[in-house]
Amino acid sequence: MSGYKIIVMIKQVPDQGSKAGLNPDGTIDRARAKRMLNPFDRFALQAALHTKKTYGGTVTAISMGPPPAVEILLEALAHGVDQAFLLSDRRLAASDTLATAYALYKTIEYVGDFDIIYCGLQTTDGDTAQVGPQLAERLGLPQITYCEDFSVKNGKVRARRIIEGGHQEVEVKPPVLVTIANSYHPLEYKSFRGAWRVQRLQRDKEALEKIVKTVNLDDVGADPDRCGLKGSPTIVAKTEKVGELGGSCTMHEGESTEHMVREVVACGALNEFLAH
């Protein structure tokens, strides 16, 4: 085998650390919000690039979202990804995880053959960790979720995955879908070559469109009825504001540290749990 065919799934999410685009009621106005690469996907990207660097192969990044999501695909390219696909279609609006997994599954089928698919553990906007496994189900693949570390030996992926209070060592022959936990190695800096390549591509629209292809549901042969609101078995029926909590905090402020700490210790609650 001349290297692995690697796919990495990434998503653009609103930057929740920035106040831009936050509506007064606490919801996010996605049009105004600052956008960023889903922080969890940075680990997936690192895993994909590490695999390529260590074992050889090519990396294809796939994303789904409105046209501005091209930004994160360019970012991935600058980090060393070889080519990218953006699935963009208005009919995808309001897709839940099942509909999203279906659309991505059709996109992967369209993109072609692969050995390993890497996904972030979850996204910071949806926060479900469901799309990865649902995609694996559609593709009929084994999966390794919560992967913290891995190696490829004798044609097998060996991985450590987190479980409650410990971890599992697992082994599987590709093809496989892996979701990377945020305890994996952080994403390395952009490569000089990659950044230069992106700069060049941004000046040459034609060349760019060959490397970063935007496709729609018809291109990938997806059934629109299984996407978007129509293809989603769940809906958000109601949202309510989480009430302001408590307001009954006993504040210790402006006194000497020793005094403030003594007051807290004196309330007795801490003593109950002291070690012996």
Binding site: A129, G132, Q143
Partner: peptide, 23 residues
């Protein structure tokens, strides 16, 4: 919503094409 439940539930939901809410 454990490492096991979050691994298994989406597979079942996708198989039966039914809705699943996380966490």
């Amino acid at each position: 919503s454990t490492t096991t439940g979050r691994d298994l539930a989406p597979r079942i939901a996708a198989h039966f094409e039914t809705g699943l809410t996380a966490d």
